[in-house]
Design a protein around this nucleic acid. Structure first.
Ligand SMILES: [Mn+2]
Ligand SMILES: [Mn+2]
Ligand SMILES: [Zn+2]
Ligand SMILES: [Zn+2]
Lengths: 148, 148
DNA sequence: TCTTCTATTGAGAATGAGTCTCATTGTATT
DNA sequence: AATACAATGAGACTCATTCTCAATAGAAGA
C-alpha cells in the first residue's frame, strides 16, 4: 500500500468512511497525473482505466482528497477549477503566462517569515495559501517583440 | 468628470468604444461600492438607480473595467467571482476567514522586492498578482476554543 | 432636420461546471 | 441469510456566465 493511500485511508477513517476500490482508483490516478488537472481531465483519464465510473463519484471524491491534504485547488483555467496533488510536494508560487498558459513554479521559502510576521500582527491563523502571479513567460515576451 | 471616468473613457477610446451613459452608470456604481462585490450585487445596486439595465450589460462591462485596470477579480465566494475597484488603491493581500468570511487586507510592500527578484530570475514579466490566504480570523479562533 | 450606419443594449435563451436525487449495489455485522 | 447503511452510477438539476438577436441610440453626413 502506497504512502498516499495510507494517508487517505487514515483521513477517511476519522470521518467514518472507507477507502473503497473506486476511491483508491481516483486517488492513484490523481497521483499519476504530474500536471495540474481539472476534474474533467481526471474523469477522462479514469475512464481509460475502467468503464464504470461516474462523474459524480469523481466530483464527490475531490473535497475528501482536499480535506485530507492530498490535493489542493491551485487556479482556475477557462472556467474550470484546476487541482494538483500536494502530498510529498511543498506548496509553491504559480507564475502563469497569460498568453501561452505555461506555469512556472517557485517556492515560498523567502516569503514565509514575512507572512508569518503579518499573520501574527493581525492575529490570523494561516491555513491554505494561494499566490498566483499572472504575466508573460520569457518565451512570450520575446515573441511579443517579434510582432512589433 | 471624475478621474476614473476619464481613465475609462481613454481606455475605451483605444478600443474604438465609447463611454456611454450605461457604462458610466456601471462604472460609478462600482466606485460607490466600498467592499468586494460580485456581479449580482452590482446588478442589484444598479437596479435601484435605474429600471432599465440588463444583467448582460453589466457582465459585458466587467472585462472592460478589468482591462482598463479599474477593477480586479480578487477571489471567489460561494461560486461567484468577487471583484473590487483598484484605481487609486494599491493591490493588497487578502486574509480570508474560512469560518465567518471576514477579509483582512495587508499590503505587499515587504514582499515586492522578493517577488521582483524571483521574476527576474525566471525572466517573467509580472502583471496581475493575487495572494489569498485562507485561515481563521482572531474572532473565529477564540470562538473555536469556546466550543471545546 | 432627415438618413444612414454602427455600436450598444435588454430580454431571454443557451451553455456548462458542479451538485443533487434516487434507485441499485457493496459490505460489514448479527 | 437478513439487516443496515455507506457508496455508486445515471442523469436531472442549478445557477453563474455567455450568447443571440431584435430594438435603440447616437454620431456623421446630406
Ligand atoms: Mn503547482
Ligand atoms: Mn481587497
Ligand atoms: Zn508564455
Ligand atoms: Zn472569522
Amino acid at each position: 500500500m502506497q504512502e498516499h493511500e495510507k494517508v487517505f485511508q487514515d483521513y477517511l477513517a476519522t470521518k467514518g468512511l472507507k477507502l473503497t476500490r473506486t476511491r483508491a482508483l481516483i486517488l492513484n490516478t490523481v497521483f499519476d497525473m504530474h500536471e495540474h488537472f481539472d476534474v474533467e481531465a481526471l474523469y477522462d483519464k479514469i475512464k481509460t482505466l475502467t468503464d464504470s465510473i461516474s462523474r459524480a463519484t469523481v466530483y464527490r471524491c475531490i473535497p475528501l482528497l482536499k480535506d485530507a491534504n492530498l490535493i489542493q485547488q491551485s487556479m482556475r483555467t477557462s472556467s474550470r477549477d484546476s487541482f494538483e496533488h500536494i502530498f510529498g510536494h511543498p506548496r509553491h508560487i504559480h507564475w502563469i503566462c497569460s498568453k501561452c498558459g505555461t506555469i512556472v513554479e517557485t517556492d515560498y521559502e523567502e516569503l514565509t517569515p514575512i507572512l508569518n510576521r503579518s499573520a501574527k500582527r493581525i492575529k490570523f491563523a494561516m491555513g491554505e495559501l494561494k499566490l498566483n502571479i499572472y504575466g508573460l513567460c520569457w518565451k512570450c515576451q520575446s515573441s511579443e517583440n517579434e510582432n512589433q
